[in-house]
Nucleic acid binder design. Structure first.
Length: 512
DNA sequence: AGCCCAGCCGCATTGTGAGC
DNA sequence: GCTCACAATGCGGCTGGGCT
């Protein structure tokens, strides 16, 4: 058997293609897929993969936090995907590992890589940890940092570049910082490998041949830390044994998204087939019952202060929060599951809070969502409207535009014979030119409609809730919307139940 | 509303092994 | 033993998330 996989991803506001020719062999209930050109790995994949709530949510999660691939050096506009995934929260790590194993049983390896700025070890918690490490291994505390020439007799180009850099707000010289880096590199790595190993063990991921844990310390003040003791940690999962199947993996993801977006039973290339129209698939949840009896329907060990039927809808209220109207029933359909994962990746709430909120006070929560792609926005809005009433789902929306796109803003202004006026001390604030602001609104509504056959929710229902343009930081123009934080206390428990309800009986006991 | 920085993910470098 | 191409690994820039 042979096949070809093609698809598009949008990154950096550019349409890019992925494309790969495969051959595959029948192997009972599995198929063995490999690249037609003979390179890469032979990968077994089940012939039929059941798309349950958690797997669909996983694809949503990957869509937000996973790597989509990098551009082929020989072919402009073509990306070659590598499967890797950034995630710090340990329960989500465990979740991702389980789902990857379901998709690719057999020859698959995991590398957990922990990155950190070594400035973390120069003061505060980091320095204390370095101290205890040296006390344990050598009997005395952290030794004084020696001269660079001693710890690093032969410097390379990267070192020379580092030494030439200028950091006006950091005390000490680059040579001293670099010496610190090389002298303590082994110790710093050992500390992180031990930490990650323990963390993985706490969620049931034990050392094994197919699991590798590494730490990657960066030169001081390079990776975001602005001062000694500052942290800029990154936790990544790289998958091995899957070379060549990245395109197929992305295609699975896009086909699932496609069925949810268009609400069709079979995806455009036939890779995904539901038992009925996606909007008619999945269990129906009674929200009155959920928030009264389900272990996931709790926050800080409490049930809502009020949850009552009012005609065919519900009125609900958490202690010290506002009253809100809810729909009585919710179908946990593919759209809902996919967005649950997507929100876990892209949402504005720290992930740890979502796991701890059942037994602890989560404090302030916020409901916000940013995306440069119309499809993600539409899916998110549709999801919220399944639980909440339309007018509560979106308070307002704005467009954030990065500096490399300012020429477009200026040209838009010129067309209208006006100049671009920016608010805020550093110009990051809201755009003050009405003509430009309105032109950008029109553009954003077109972006929101682009992936759909008809009009998007943003343009048909929420166009008048447009707030402003924000020429902030940098980056591709993107749409940002937010809703009342009251929604969080209803949406988050349902979201967590969707992803973990099938594998975790009581979130208060099993998380943290 | 305004602003900024740290984490995501792209890409450069290094490692590895097949082919000649 | 050398070369080349692909895989694995390590590093850091940019931007999207999030704080005040």
């Amino acid at each position: 058997m042979q096949g070809r996989v093609v698809g598009c991803v949008i990154t950096d506001a550019k349409d890019r293609q992925y494309r790969r020719e495969y051959v595959c062999d029948d192997a009972g209930d599995k198929i063995v897929v490999r690249r037609e050109d003979g390179n890469g790995d032979a990968v077994s994949i089940p012939k039929i993969i059941e798309l349950d709530e958690s797997l669909v949510a996983f694809f949503g999660l990957y869509s937000g936090d996973g790597a989509k691939g990098s551009e082929d050096r020989n072919e402009v506009g073509r990306i070659v995907p590598t499967i890797s995934f950034s995630q710090k929260e340990k329960h989500l790590v465990r979740f991702a590992v389980d789902q990857f194993r379901r998709l690719f049983p057999g020859n698959i390896r995991f590398t957990f890589s922990l990155g950190e700025d070594s400035a973390y070890f120069m003061a505060g918690d980091g320095l204390e940890r370095l101290n205890s490490y040296y006390l344990e291994t050598t009997g005395s505390g952290t030794p004084a940092t020696k001269a660079l020439a001693v710890v690093r007799p032969n410097i390379n180009d990267k070192d020379r570049q580092y030494i030439a850099e200028v950091r006006p707000d950091v005390a000490g010289t680059n040579e001293e910082h670099l010496a610190f880096y090389y002298q303590h590199q082994e110790a710093m790595e050992a500390i992180f490998v031990a930490e990650k190993t323990a963390e993985l063990a706490s969620v049931g991921i034990q050392p094994a041949d197919d699991i590798k844990i590494t730490a990657s310390l960066r030169r001081p003040f390079k990776k975001g830390a602005r001062q000694p003791g500052g942290s800029s940690r990154s936790d990544e999962i790289h998958l091995g044994g899957l070379n060549g199947v990245g395109e197929l993996f992305l295609k699975m993801m896009h086909e699932i998204e496609d069925t949810a977006l268009r609400d069709v039973q079979t995806s455009s290339q036939g890779l995904v087939r539901w038992i009925a129209k996606p909007s008619e698939v999945g269990q129906t949840l009674d929200l009155l019952d959920f928030f009264t009896n389900n272990p996931f329907g709790k926050i800080n060990r409490e049930r809502p202060a009020k949850i009552a039927l009012d005609g065919d809808r519900l009125l609900g209220q958490w202690r010290r929060s506002s009253e809100i109207r809810l729909r009585r029933h919710l179908r946990i359909d593919p759209l809902w599951c996919y967005v649950a994962g997507l929100y876990l990746a892209e949402g504005s709430t720290p992930k740890e809070a979502l796991f701890k909120m059942f037994g602890e006070n989560p404090g302030a929560m916020a409901m916000g969502f940013t995306s440069s792609e119309g499809a993600s926005l539409e899916l998110m809005l549709r999801t919220l409207r399944k639980v909440f009433f339309p007018e509560d789902c979106l308070e307002a929306w704005k467009v954030k535009v990065g500096s490399q796109y300012f020429p477009e803003l200026v040209v838009t202004g010129l067309k209208h014979g006006v100049s671009m006026l920016r608010g805020g001390a550093s110009g990051d604030g809201k755009l003050r030119t009405m003509e430009v602001s309105l032109a950008i609104k029109q553009w954003a509504l077109e972006v929101a409609d682009a992936p759909l056959d008809g009009a998007s929710l943003l343009s048909s229902e929420y166009a008048d809730r447009y707030s402003h343009v924000e020429p902030t930081g940098s980056g591709v123009a993107r749409i940002d919307f937010w809703a009342s934080s009251t929604l969080c206390r209803w949406y988050f428990p349902l979201l967590m139940h969707t992803v973990f309800g099938g594998i975790v009986a009581d979130p208060m006991e099993e998380f943290y």
